[in-house]
Design a protein around this nucleic acid. Structure first.
Lengths: 110, 110
DNA sequence: GAAATCTATGTCGATTATGACATATTCGGA
DNA sequence: TCCGAATATGTCATAATCGACATAGATTTC
């Protein structure tokens, strides 16, 4: 396939590469999940470090203890939004959040 | 207020500090929003760099052009989840995502 | 080892984000 | 300027996530 055609197809939204590109979708999904798990671990780590219970954090977030528990457990039903809000709520800096995100890749390499 | 009582109240979820602590919620919200805007800018930057149209990216995401447009416009209705999935989809590394998140703080400082 | 506190898990109605679609607007090349 | 492609904006039904609640299990404290 020539480069122009490839580019045109890609602009139309088609994946034109190898099987690895198809698997790429799964790979992206897996990276996304690892990222969420890393942030979930971060929430627990910082919450405990701050001496807060799940209930206390939940109140700060105007959420509930069960949601915090699910969050820390990496439950599928928990959004990235809530994870990041939680990290900000327990005092994480952007740099710390960034660090956990990078850590997600390390987990994948293992 | 003595330290023990303060700690007990905090574990129950009460904010015991100054007005700044109350404002802290707004501050966290503002940091969160800045973060989303920074990632939105990242999506556009990488998408254009890859020579993809909004429609092409939408197809990769199994989403729609209008949602990509809203995403890049920083629309309130767009989740962090979709932003991050988009960044992964246009080939952003975790390190790059982390960089944009840190950049959000710089925007706030300005 | 009982009581009290904390955490995990399941469920549910309400809320919010979603893709899809229609359509308006902007932009770039002939 | 005109035309087609790209992008922006509004709406909607559906799907995903939400807080709340009940309750089980784990952990700590006395």
């Amino acid at each position: 396939m020539n480069s122009n055609k490839k580019k045109r197809l890609e602009q139309a939204g088609w994946v034109t590469g190898s099987a690895a590109d198809f698997l790429g979708l799964d790979d992206e999904e897996s990276r996304f999940i690892e990222m969420k798990l890393a942030l979930a671990a971060g929430v627990r780590e910082l919450r405990v470090k701050r001496g807060l219970t799940q209930t206390a954090l939940a109140t700060r977030l105007k959420s509930s203890q069960s949601r915090v528990a699910k969050m820390e457990a990496g439950d599928r039903s928990v959004s990235l939004d809530l994870l990041v809000r939680s990290l900000l709520s327990v005092g994480a800096s952007s740099a710390e959040i960034a660090k956990w995100i990078k850590r997600a890749d390390a987990a994948r390499a293992a």
